[in-house]
């Protein structure tokens, strides 16, 4: 690849961050996975095929770095760990401004099985086709399609419940 790496960060940084947050929750783990993803990508960048789909390539790296992050959490092994107090949606990171999407979303996300959460992240957030999602999470493309559809439906239901209980 002979394009500036800068362009990959600019074009795909936001998508990769959403994916990392969807898989790991809104805390520091997701930001660390984002950083590890782009450092790995920068290292490999000059050798990447210029015709490669950069976003799909970055999401694949983010997938691996997220697995590393989950392993690094060791035996706590909660699929999406409780975010530290300061990073909850109800509060802020210091200045009173809620900087991350609300707790409802993250708690709905935590309630999904791991594979559904990844399928939602890779298909709905990153736009990967089901076949590519299946290559990452295992199983058939049809299973990946079902998991992402079930995942997004469960998320919607959970968000609607949270909305009703708030009203």
């Amino acid at each position: 690849m002979d394009q500036p790496f800068e362009v990959a960060v600019r074009d795909h940084g936001a998508v990769v961050l959403r994916v990392c947050r969807a898989v790991l929750g809104p805390g520091a783990d997701a930001e660390d996975a984002w950083s590890e993803t782009f450092v790995s990508a920068l290292r490999a960048w000059p050798e990447l095929d210029p015709a490669a789909d950069v976003r799909a390539w970055l999401v694949t790296i983010a997938h691996r770095r997220a697995i590393d992050a989950v392993r690094a959490r060791g035996r706590r092994a909660v699929p999406v760990a409780e975010p530290p107090e300061r990073e909850r949606g109800d509060g802020a990171r210091g200045d009173g401004e809620p900087e991350l999407p609300d707790e409802e979303l993250w708690s709905a996300l935590r309630s999904l099985p791991d594979k559904q959460r990844r399928c939602v992240a890779y298909h709905h957030l990153a736009g990967l086709p089901h076949a590519e999602v299946a290559a990452l999470v295992g199983g058939t493309p049809e299973a990946a399609r079902r998991a992402s559809a079930d995942g997004i439906a469960a998320l919607r239901r959970a968000m609607a419940r949270a909305g009703r209980s708030r009203a």
Partner: peptide, 24 residues
């Protein structure tokens, strides 16, 4: 669009990306 709205909630503020870019 409801789904889009849901997915957009994962975004977080623009400043996060600027900070991460500097860290990178």
């Amino acid at each position: 669009s409801e789904e889009r709205e849901l997915l957009d909630r994962f975004a977080g503020p623009e400043e996060d990306l600027e900070r991460l870019g500097r860290r990178l």
